[in-house]
């Protein structure tokens, strides 16, 4: 599988273009987090701050309970991720491999949740949560996040399941392994890349979700990170750009670490083994 040098060069140029497109706005926010308020409100457009200031970070950390809300967010995001993965894996398999009314109902539900404007579900959802006394709790928020991310994770995972050749399972079954074993040792390992992508999705969704957290949480000590970050957007568009940028940069770091961790598992290159196993 050799690639010609010209193609290779083209690939690098294209990749560099993508990296510039995706990375530049990130760099710009990082640069903004080190700029003084005066520089941010000037006509200069340099990526390197004229004068490096660090007060944005101290201000972000000191003033808005950033750390407490980060801890809340982390708890919520990790629990959502774990629960989400645990529920998605078997359900997506069932949804992809089996048919009949159950599957049809599942598909309708998945699409309906995604298509129906979320804003219209908020108030009925709030009333339900209040009835079961879970409004203004992180546990309620986690359950809501899990059920709200589940349609998408199922939708994606059933795509991955569908891509697994049925023959692999049949081969396993012929070797005499029972169905549960086939699932555990043949199907699930093959789904690992998709599962890792799913885990990333649930983590980031829960970590960055703003609107549901805003309306479901009332006590300031339960606020999640996005709520705290938004408090830098004041009334009348008085955005405190520097501290907001600093807060956003800090808020990005945990997700990137989680990504780095899951990313390794996403690309394990384990398929060759799985087929023989």
């Amino acid at each position: 599988m050799r690639t010609s040098p010209r193609v290779r060069a083209g690939q690098y140029v294209l990749l560099a273009g993508f990296l510039l497109f995706l990375g530049f706005p990130v760099l710009w926010i990082v640069s903004a987090s080190f700029k003084s308020s005066a520089e941010l409100n000037s006509l200069s457009a340099s990526l390197i701050p004229n004068e490096w200031v660090f007060t944005n970070f101290t201000e972000a950390l000191e003033r808005q309970n950033l750390l407490r809300s980060a801890a809340n967010s982390f708890l919520v995001a990790v629990c959502t991720m774990v629960l989400g993965v645990v529920l998605t894996l078997p359900m997506s398999y069932a949804l992809a491999r089996l048919r009949g009314k159950l599957r049809a109902a599942g598909t309708v539900w998945i699409l309906a949740t995604q298509v129906f404007p979320q804003i219209l579900i908020i108030i009925p959802l709030f009333l339900v949560l209040r009835t079961v006394m879970l409004n203004d709790t992180l546990f309620g928020l986690i359950l809501v996040y899990v059920t709200f991310t589940l349609p998408f994770t199922l939708w994606m995972m059933q795509g991955y399941v569908a891509a697994i050749p049925r023959e692999l399972e049949d081969a396993g079954a012929m070797d005499g392994a029972n169905r549960f074993r086939v699932l555990l040792h043949i199907v699930f390992p093959l789904l690992r890349p998709g599962l890792m992508a799913t885990a990333m999705f649930t983590f980031v969704s829960a970590w960055n979700e703003f609107f549901l957290a805003l309306v479901l949480l009332q006590s300031p000590e339960l606020y999640t990170l996005p709520i705290t970050l938004r408090s830098f957007l004041g009334a009348e568009g008085q955005t405190q750009l520097g501290p907001l940028a600093a807060g956003a940069v800090l808020a990005t770091i945990p997700s990137v670490i989680v990504f780095g961790f899951l990313q390794k598992k996403l690309t394990g290159g384990m398929l060759a083994g799985a087929v023989k196993g």
């Binding site: 409004n135 703003f210 709520i227």
Partner: peptide, 18 residues
């Protein structure tokens, strides 16, 4: 609470009785 989204939060709170 914060200004951003304050209206949405309040309308949910009022409708939900909290």
């Amino acid at each position: 609470a914060g200004w951003d989204g304050a209206y949405d939060k309040l309308i949910t709170q009022f409708t939900g009785g909290t």
